[in-house]
Amino acid sequence: MSGVIDIVYAEYNYWIYVTLMMIGFYAMIAKKNLIKKVIGANIFQTAIFLFYISLSDVKGGTAPILVGGHGAEHAADVIYTNPVPHCLILTAIVVAVSTTAVALALIIRIYNEYGSIEEDVILAARRKLQPEFSEHARQKGVAEVSRQ
């Protein structure tokens, strides 16, 4: 029993990131509201950021900024955390912001067009507007139908 607790304690960051990631995943696949889907995607991304940042951590290490600044003799015994994941995640955060912005803009356009952000309502309205979108399209392929 204590062995299991030790394993969980040594790797509790993975448990946290998996929990957070699955919350986001559930929101993405189970919710019908498009805004909630975007929030789920954001939680999912945050879980991955947390995973990378926790991978870069070293016990007793300081932030990866060289101690002493310019010209100082750098002490060899200072432990720095791993700077590479920080840099990767800085890139990922910017991409996350960009995708979120474009997704929200698309949702605003969808709301203006259909008057709703619920997936069911949008699909129903779309089937009413284009009857060929539903049954016929599934049989013949959407591209062929739109050409007719």
Binding site: I7, A10, E11, Y14, M21, L55, K59
Partner: peptide, 17 residues
């Protein structure tokens, strides 16, 4: 989630130098 936890068992421990 269970698969991710299972896969995470081989990863290094938190703060491992």
């Amino acid at each position: 989630g269970a698969m991710l936890i299972y896969a995470g068992q081989d990863l290094p421990a938190f703060g491992d130098i």
